[in-house]
């Protein structure tokens, strides 16, 4: 067994939270620059330039990219030959989030109870997904995601007969209903198949792929391309003030499902796409 100390995990998560909120990924910057070239509306171009300028200021002045520094989702791939010592995995991650949000001057945006709504003051707890994998590695991926876009996400249980066309309609309708609220240009994550909850998990996980990368299966890649074109033909454009660049990318993930089911989940992500990964 390979031993990893809980304190190492805490320090790693702390740094990931801070880095994600200050440093926009190169894949997002590249996608924004591509969208600038195809945007037809002059104000839409100005918005994209302002978003790129915002990323530069955030990076140089260590200022959060967005005031909604998000809820923290942590995807853990835990090798089966790893032993966590001197602490507990979930507690170590939670402590890392608390330290990262406090030391990084990030906003505390989590309330302890959905009805009583009292702020926990350190953005904990994070939402943790743990996957067991082969080997001696521990991979930590964190996503700091704003709720403006999360709130515009939707889910539906379609029938197998409804199929591909209804999937396309549902995704496009979700984007149009969101309008300017989720901060376009968006990254649209789609989960197809599985169960009620697993489709939502896949939709979120699809957002972890490098922005604009395609699914390896040709028929899913084709679906991604069709969705991308249709979403960008809605006319919403950057911030829904008008134009072409409604989405930077559409990512679709699939998995096996029941003979009676076609679950579809659409997880909407804003342009302030904050994801960072470290493998220990």
């Amino acid at each position: 067994m390979r031993q990893i100390e809980a304190s190492t995990i805490t320090q790693t998560v702390e740094k990931l939270c801070i880095d994600a909120n200050y440093f926009l990924g190169q894949d997002v910057i590249d996608a924004l620059e591509r969208s600038l070239k195809t945007e037809e509306f002059c104000i839409g171009q100005r918005i994209i330039r302002d978003i790129l300028e915002n990323a530069r200021i955030a990076r140089e002045e260590l200022a959060p990219l967005c005031q909604d520094t998000g809820f923290t989702v942590v995807f853990v791939e835990l090798g089966q030959e790893v032993e966590i010592v001197d602490g507990n995995l979930k507690e170590a991650i939670t402590k890392g989030v608390s330290q990262g949000y406090t030391k990084g001057y990030l906003r505390a945006s989590i309330v302890k109870d959905p009805l009583k709504r009292i702020n926990t003051k350190d953005n904990t707890p994070p939402f943790i997904h743990i996957d067991a994998i082969q080997g001696k590695q521990l991979k930590l991926t964190i996503m700091c995601k704003g709720s403006g876009c999360e709130n515009m996400s939707r889910h539906i249980m379609l029938t197998p007969a409804q199929g591909r066309k209804e999937i396309v309609d549902f995704v496009v309708e979700t984007v149009v209903r969101g309008g300017g609220r989720p901060c376009p240009p968006l990254i649209v994550g789609v989960g197809l198949g599985g169960t009620f909850e697993y489709s939502a998990y896949m939709a979120k996980k699809s957002l972890l792929r490098p922005v604009s990368s395609h699914h390896p299966e040709p028929h899913i890649k084709e679906l991604e391309e069709e969705l991308f074109e249709k979403v960008n033909n809605t006319g919403l454009g950057p911030q829904a003030w008008g134009g072409r660049a409604t989405a930077l990318a559409v990512h679709v993930e699939t998995c096996p499902t029941h003979i009676a089911s076609l679950p579809v989940a659409v997880n909407i992500e804003c342009h302030s796409h904050r994801v960072k990964t470290v493998t220990l």
Partner: peptide, 22 residues
Amino acid sequence: YVGPTPARPGRVIGSAGPTTSS
């Protein structure tokens, strides 16, 4: 409609973009 991030020492305010109006 804004909920800013905490200001670093010496700065007027943290980051301060708009939240969802609706």
